[in-house]
Computed example of a mutant assay.
Amino acid sequence: MASHQQNSDLKLTVPAAAAPESGKQYDYSKRSQWLRAAVLGANDGLVSTASLLMGIGSVKTDVKAMILTGFAGLVAGACSMAIGEFVSVYSQLDIEVAQLRRDKKAAAAAGEIDDGSSKEDLPNPVQAAAASALTFSVGAMVPLLAASFITDYRARIASIVASATAALLAFGWLGAALGKAPVVRSSARVLIGGWMAMGITFGLTKLIGSKSL
């Protein structure tokens, strides 16, 4: 009778213990590092280049001047993002490597074996720099291409704003969807921030340009 009772207990407890494993969900916070770099790079490329085009467009109607300004902003911004991300992630790498060394010494002193498996999770500065430069360039190409094939000044400005708006909404939605965050709030935040940057750049450049040029 006792044996039957023990077997019944085992049948009841084993599925209960296994249930959390079968229902285990992916931890979306693990995406935060590469997602941050990718979304930040694309959004910065889009907003900064669109703002540059709007700024130069507020004082000059020449399409050539606008395209050259946008291209210079793309190259400069991509290089800046890559260098900044490389330095930032390399600093993080130095800190984590130093911590691993301390952990290894502590394990050796305690007679434990350090398998070094955590080294696989160390950040990669080169990968982060390349991702930031690439995503910045992708974002910057959106308003640049929108302005490249339109000769009429007003239509060109409208095209930049329209393409930037669509891309801002797409980047906001993508970042929220990949990170399982609220889509509407994320898209609205990105869109309003981009509009503000373009509007301020256009207004201030036009104000200064009308008085000094």
Rank of each mutant, 00 (worst) to 15 (best):
S137W: 12
V190M: 14
K119M: 04
R31M: 04
K30N: 00
W195S: 03
K180M: 02
F202L: 05
P125H: 01
M198D: 03
F202Q: 06
V47M: 13
L46N: 04
A76T: 13
E96N: 00
A170P: 03
A170G: 06
E21T: 14
R101L: 10
G179Q: 13
K206Q: 09
P182R: 05
A131L: 15
G84K: 02
N7V: 12
L100V: 10
S132L: 05
I113C: 03
L52Q: 08
S117V: 11
V89G: 00
I208W: 00
S118A: 14
E21C: 10
G175L: 04
K30F: 02
G116P: 11
V14L: 15
S88T: 10
G194A: 11
S210N: 13
A164Y: 06
A166M: 15
V39S: 07
P123G: 00
A170T: 13
S212D: 08
S118C: 05
A133Y: 07
V138P: 06
K105G: 10
L134T: 13
K105F: 12
V142K: 07
S32D: 05
K30S: 01
E112C: 13
G73C: 07
I67H: 08
A181Y: 15
V183Y: 08
G209N: 01
I67F: 08
T205A: 08
T135R: 02
V161S: 06
A98V: 03
M198I: 09
T61G: 08
A164I: 01
T61N: 09
K180I: 11
D121L: 11
V97W: 00
T49L: 05
H4P: 08
T135G: 12
L134P: 03
S22M: 12
L134E: 04
D115N: 13
